[in-house]
Design a protein around this nucleic acid. Sequence first.
RNA 1: GCGCCUUUAGCUCAGUGGUAGAGCGUCACAUUGACAUUGUGAAGGCCGCAGGUUCGAUCCCUGCAAGGCGCACCA
Length: 716
Amino acid sequence: MQELNKNYDHKILEENIYKKWENICKNSGYLNPDNLPGNRKKTFTIVAPPPNVTGALHMGHALNAVIQDILIRKKRMEGFLTLWLPGTDHAGIATQNVVEKDLKKQNIYRSQLGREKFLEKVWEWKEKYGNIILDQFKKIGASMDWSRVRFTMDFEYQQAVQAAFIHYFKKGLIYRAERIINWCFRCATSLSDLELEYKEEHSKLYYIKYFISGVNNYVIVATTRPETIFGDVAVAVNPKDKRYKNLIGQKVILPIQNREIPIIADYAVDQVFGTGIVKITPAHDMFDAEVATRHNLPLIKIIDIDGKMNVSVGPLFVGLKILECREKIIEILKNNNLLEKEDDYFHNVPVCYRCGTNVELIPSLQWFLKMDNFVKTAIKAVKSKEIKFYPKRWEKIYFNWLSNARDWCISRQIWWGHQLPVWFCKKQNQKFIVCGKTPTKCPFCKKCIMERSSDVLDTWFSSALWPFATLGWPKKTKDFRKFYPTQVLSTARDIINLWVTRMIYSGIEFINKKPFSDVIIHATILTKDGRRMSKSLGTGVDPINLINQYGADATRFGLIWQTMGNQDVHWSEEHVVAGKKFCNKIWNASKFVIINNSNINNKLKYKLTSHDKNIIYQFKKIKKEVENDINNYQFSQALHKIYHYFWHTFCDKIIEEMKPRLQGENEKDKQASQYVLLEILKGSLKLLHPFMPFITEEIWQNMPNNKNKMLMVEKW
RNA sequence: GCGCCUUUAGCUCAGUGGUAGAGCGUCACAUUGACAUUGUGAAGGCCGCAGGUUCGAUCCCUGCAAGGCGCACCA
């Protein structure tokens, strides 16, 4: 038997323990299901949500890792064949942007480098931050299988993404078309509807006179975007609007361009807003596009993807940036007495979720994934309770978005990502083929060397395949057959629609099996004053700092302790301090129990008192409750119970009661009390292990007859 | 505009249709004992506001307010 150090010191202890778990045998030790002892049949799999390689992990990631680790560790002790698969996400636009920013500090620009050189830089970045992230997972104690690390752009994963694209295309679910899409000028790429955020902007509402054809009278149209009048194809009023009823069917003369456009009636027009007349610019506004479709109106594109006005606006304005054009138009309108007035106006404008630049709606030739089938499949999977959300209320978010979703624009005009498996003919450049290998011969002109599309896929197209592509799909590998479908997905609420919906759909589409059964939406960690934790705002807390200062066990304790009910949490470090104190308590109580077992005599037959039996019975009850709590994903509740039991029942009452017996003359009674203390301690360490794996493992290995045994794989 | 969440002790949060709980903090006392990273105890709350249901509401219902979030709109 060994002895515990006098004082609890997390630093060396945690590092050594992790090495033991990982190195007990080759190939990731007990972290790898292939190495687990015993005959394990039932699998329990979690594929960890892959963090973006944009930078280091934050408290939210740490919480998510701890939640998954609790589940995995408990199942591993319960005898399951447990796989927790780690990895990272290339995170297309996000990573491209951070690398661009980083290069800019050295005065290097993406355009100077060219695609190939730039991508080399991104891979360097990925190498660095990818490793930092994986190391952070180890530090927090995550028992992930390091022999199965995946990245959303590694070679096999690229094969999976291509296979998925080709599958959809052959099924007619992917199509190429010119549609109005969201365009970020800074990132110079299209964005899906989910990649937008909204920002309140102070602007002006301009009231512009549109003269009625053939009459010396005018109507007034209110707009925030006077520069788009070049794209106007009509003005619309509500057919119920008495003010304008007799104007319907007449024409107005578009200011500046002096073009005639019709006055149309559409019920979607809000009579109360502005003057009740809206100009219709179908090329650059979703609402207008819908109206135009209903009325068979043409579409005039006036803004190009470089953010400048194109030739259709006439020589005076061509080449101007949007805001320059707006100013110039206002000036001209004023000079011609066509501007009635301008009001202050606040409204929400869409901005890019990665760089915050205003996003413009522009017609563009892009690739889309049809949503009809997607929506039906995804809704059914949750409505039928095959997949359940915890807490349940998040299902509403899920349904809400799905029932409104438009076809998904999946092509991006950036460099970092999965290039589309599409090849174009050089001679007839609208002709293309979709295939997984570089085509040797062009099927159209029979001569040219076909050119691969320079577009890449939306990063979420590839993450949608994560639960099975990481296991080897589309190959039917051993891992894939053994570990798919997985059981649990734990993630943050802000990617329910971006990611969870798409994984559910993809899993069912490709494998015909849901990718997981339970979706845990964990708490969002906010700062003390309720703001978002963010590096750019300087409000972030780095889990590594906490781990260094208080230890991973204390940090895990602090995280789980305060995330009751999976609500938002106002972060407070005191709970980590409490965790550290608890570690110390566990350490000292264990030390006491172990010392008092040092001269135990196994031959002596002792008898437990009814009080002793009751203590053991009470413990079993607590154990059952904790088990239930974990099974229901009530981690915080479980931890509160163990904490309270260990400290205030086991330490304050049971140990104190036993002390006279331990020092007494009656050998049998002494041994009985030693037995009780040891049993409760062992049981408590097992219960605590999923929450605080390091300290419990260290103590376990220092208990009588436990040399070379590992708590991590002990029977629960 | 539609919907969701939150509001309980100084702070962070549990909880129950029948006199309010934890952690941290505060105060008093005790102890060199496995543990001062301790123990015992205390102070501290019209359980957001206003109605309703009920013998009884912090809990159920309705309305309101404040804060947070999602979706839609944003001419």
